[in-house]
Design a protein around this nucleic acid. Structure first.
Lengths: 388, 388
DNA sequence: CTAGTTTGTTAGTTACGTTAACAAACAAAA
DNA sequence: TTTTGTTTGTTAACGTAACTAACAAACTAG
C-alpha cells in the first residue's frame, strides 16, 4: 500500500478505521452495523477497525440496541482519547465560549458580558478572551481528553498567517491573549461563523450553496458555496459594506458608503428626519421601530419597507455575482421576519430567482458556527486528511 | 479492496494506473520514471500499470529519452483508445470548433462565420452547430479513437437538466441540432469558458482564484474560485449586468440597467453626446474611440477613462462580494490595455486589494476554455472518478 | 424447545501495493 | 576496448487491508 504518511496527531489507522471514526464523529453515535452499512464495509473489517479504535480510546462502547429480531447490536460513540475543542465568539458585547467533544457534545459553556461595548477588536476583548480561555482550561476534566483545537470568531476580516494581518487588525486579538501551545488555532470572521451555523442548525440545512446576509449595526455577508465557506484573497469575501455606492450615471461612489447608509445609525436618522408630525415621537431605536411597525404604525411600516427594499437591492447585487439561490437574512434588523418578503420581491425583480428566508438562530449562532469549524479542523487533524 | 464500481466507459484499472493515465493526459507526455516519481510509485508498480495501459491502448510508447547517464527512459503519451473530444464555441458571429485528444492535441479545427450576427441563441446558430459537428464527425480518422464527450459554449445562462431551461433559452440550441448519442454533452456559458482559458493559458495561470470580467457589447463575469468554476443556482453567477443600478439613496434600481449602461451602444451614445465641437466628428465605434485615445485625442482619452472608472466601480462591487484578489479584463472594450490601470485604481480605492490584468488571449479563448472543460469531463469518465 | 434472524469472529483469499535482487542499456573513465 | 558506475525495467517474494465463506453467539417468535 502507498505509505500512509501520518500527520503526527492521528495514530496509524487503516483507511476504513479513519472513515468509521469520522462518520461517528459527525453522526454523534451509531451502532456497528449502521456504520458498516453506511460505509459499505464488511463485518470482519468492522471488527478489526472497531477493536483498533477502541484500543486507542478513540471510540467507546456505550450500550447495545435490540432490533426487531436477532442479536443486539453494539452502540458506539467517540471516546475520551479523541479529546475536546474550545470555541469562542469574541463579540463586541459578549464573549461566548463552548467546550465540546469532537462529536459536538457540550462539555462546558459560558457567556461573559463585556463591561463596555467594543466597536473594534482591541485590548479589552483580547483580555476577556484570555481570561475565559484560561478559566475553561482550568476546569478541564480528565475525561475531556486532550485539547485538539481552539477556534475564535472575530468581528473583523481574517486572513491566513502569510497575509497582511495588519490591515485586518486581527492581530489585536493577541495583544493580551497568548493561544495555548500544542493545539491548532483557527480564526474566522463572525459573520462567516453565523453562516456555518445556519447551514448546520438553522435555515439553510438542506442546501450546500447559500448566502447569509447580516443587517444590523453594520452589514455583512457569509458565503457558503458548494458546502465550503468562501473567504477570498484578503478575507474580504462577503464584505458587502464595500459595494460601490452610490452607483449611478452621475454619482461618484465612495468607499464603505453602503455600510454607513445601511447601518442602524443612518437608518434611524432617516427615520427621524422623515417622521410625520401626526405620529408622535419618532422611534428611539431599531427595535422600537420594528415593534411599532408590528403594532400598526403606518410611518414605521413605510420606513421598514423602504429599508427592506434597500436590502433587496443589495441582495440583488449579490445574486448577480454569485447566484446563491437562497439568502438567509439575519442580524438585529435583518433578522426580523417582516423584512424577508419584500427583500425577496425586490431581489427577484432586479436579478435572478432567490428564496429569502429569515434566520432561525439566536445569539448563539456565531459560537455554534465556530464550534463546527473547529470540530471539523480537529477531525481533519485526527484522521490526517490530505485533501487535494 | 472496496469494489471499484466501474462507470461503464473506463475498463477495470487499478488506482495507480488511473492516476498515471490522468497525469499523462494533463501533462501531454512524460517518461516512465517521471510519472513514477510524480506519483510516488515504485518501478514494479509502474511496470504493471504501464503494460496494462498499453495493452488496452490508453497509452502509447512514443520514443526514448537519454538522460545524462544510464539507460534510456521510455516516453509515453495518451493512446488512440483514449479517444477524442469535440469542443464548439457557438458565438454570435462565429462558430469555432476544435477536435482534440484527451491530452489536448489538436486533431482538427474550423471557424465558420455566421451569415448574420445573432443577438440571441436561436435556430440560425443551432443549424450552424449541427452542420459543423456533423462535418467534424464525418472527417474523423480511425486513429482518433472513440468520441468521448462533446462540449458547447453558449452565449446564454446554462443550468443543469433538472432546472428551468426555458428561462435560460439554452434549449434553443437543440431546435436544429441533435447531439450525437453515446458521448456526454457539456454546455457552458461562453464567459465562463473564457475564464477557464485565462486560467489554463492566459493571464491567470498561477492563481486558483480570480474573476474574468468581459466588457464589450454586453458585460459579464466568470468566477474561478479555488480552481472551480462558480455557476450558481440558476447558472447566473457572474451575470453582473444585473447588479442593482442605479443604486443611491434616492434612485430606484431597474433590472438589467447596468448591462444597458455599460454596453457599447450606451457608451457610444454618451461619447457622442459629450463630444466637444473642437475635436471634429465623434468616434464611429468603440475601436475608433480606443484608437483615438491611443493617438492622443483628449476627448477620447477622457471618455475611455470615464468608462474605466465605471468598470472600476463594478469590479469593486464584485471584489466586495467574492474578493478574488485578481481580475482579468477582457472583451472588445475591456480587453484594451489602456483600461486596466484606472480600473485597478478605482477598485482598490473603493474596496479591497485587487490586481487588475488585461486578457492575453484572443478570440480563441472561448473554444480553448470549452475544450479544457470537455477534456476534463472525458477524463473523469475514463478514470471513473466519483468525487465527494 | 426449535427455527429463523441478526451480530460478531475466525479462517482463507484476493488485490495491489511494497522491497530486494538482478538484467539490460547506456556514458564516462581507465 | 574494457571496465565501472548509473539508470531503467523486470522478476520474485512479501505485506497490508480489504474481501467472502463459514461458524458461533445472542436474540425473537412460534
Amino acid at each position: 500500500m502507498a505509505s500512509a504518511s501520518d500527520t503526527g496527531s492521528g495514530a496509524t489507522l487503516t483507511a476504513s478505521a479513519r472513515a468509521i471514526f469520522r462518520l461517528l464523529a459527525l453522526q454523534g453515535s451509531a451502532t456497528r452495523p449502521q456504520l458498516g452499512q453506511s460505509l459499505g464495509l464488511s463485518r470482519p473489517t468492522m471488527s478489526a477497525a472497531m477493536s483498533e479504535l477502541e484500543r486507542i480510546g478513540y471510540v467507546d462502547r456505550v450500550g447495545e440496541v435490540q432490533g426487531a429480531l436477532g442479536r443486539k447490536a453494539a452502540m458506539y460513540r467517540v471516546g475520551t482519547a479523541a479529546g475536546h475543542v474550545i470555541a469562542v465568539d469574541a463579540g463586541s458585547t459578549h464573549i461566548r465560549l463552548r467546550v465540546s467533544t469532537i462529536d459536538c457534545r457540550l462539555l462546558h459553556s459560558r457567556v461573559y458580558r463585556l463591561p463596555s461595548s467594543q466597536l473594534m477588536l482591541g485590548a479589552e476583548i483580547s483580555a476577556a478572551v484570555a481570561d475565559e480561555v484560561a478559566a475553561a482550561m482550568a476546569v478541564a476534566q480528565a475525561d475531556w481528553g486532550p485539547l485538539r483545537a481552539l477556534g475564535i470568531a472575530l468581528p473583523s476580516r481574517v486572513v491566513g498567517p502569510g497575509e497582511d494581518t495588519v490591515a485586518t487588525r486581527q492581530d489585536e486579538l493577541f495583544s493580551r491573549f497568548a493561544p495555548p501551545q500544542g493545539a491548532p488555532l483557527i480564526l474566522e470572521n463572525n459573520v462567516n461563523c453565523a453562516a456555518v451555523a445556519e447551514h448546520v442548525y438553522g435555515a439553510a440545512q438542506e442546501t450546500a450553496t447559500f448566502a447569509y446576509v447580516q443587517v444590523g449595526l453594520k452589514i455583512g455577508m457569509g458565503l457558503m458555496l458548494e458546502g465550503r465557506l468562501l473567504r477570498g484573497r484578503n478575507g474580504a469575501a462577503g464584505e458587502i459594506g464595500h459595494l460601490a455606492f452610490p452607483l449611478a450615471g452621475d454619482a461618484r461612489p465612495e468607499p464603505g458608503e453602503i455600510e454607513r447608509y445601511m447601518g442602524t445609525e443612518a437608518l434611524m436618522r432617516r427615520v427621524r428626519d422623515g417622521w410625520p408630525a401626526g405620529e408622535g415621537d419618532a422611534p428611539a431605536d431599531t427595535s422600537d421601530l420594528l415593534a411599532r411597525a408590528e403594532s400598526g404604525s403606518g410611518a414605521a411600516q413605510a420606513a421598514v419597507t423602504r429599508h427592506a427594499e434597500d436590502i433587496g437591492a443589495i441582495v440583488a447585487s449579490c445574486v448577480a455575482v454569485v447566484d446563491p439561490g437562497i439568502v438567509v437574512l439575519g442580524g438585529g434588523v435583518g433578522g426580523h421576519p417582516r423584512l424577508a418578503p419584500r427583500v425577496e420581491e425586490v431581489a427577484n425583480r432586479l436579478s435572478y430567482p432567490v428564496e429569502v428566508r429569515t434566520s432561525t438562530l439566536g445569539s448563539d449562532a456565531t459560537v455554534l458556527g465556530i464550534e463546527k469549524l473547529v470540530v471539523d479542523r480537529a477531525l481533519e487533524g485526527l484522521v490526517g486528511e490530505l485533501r487535494a
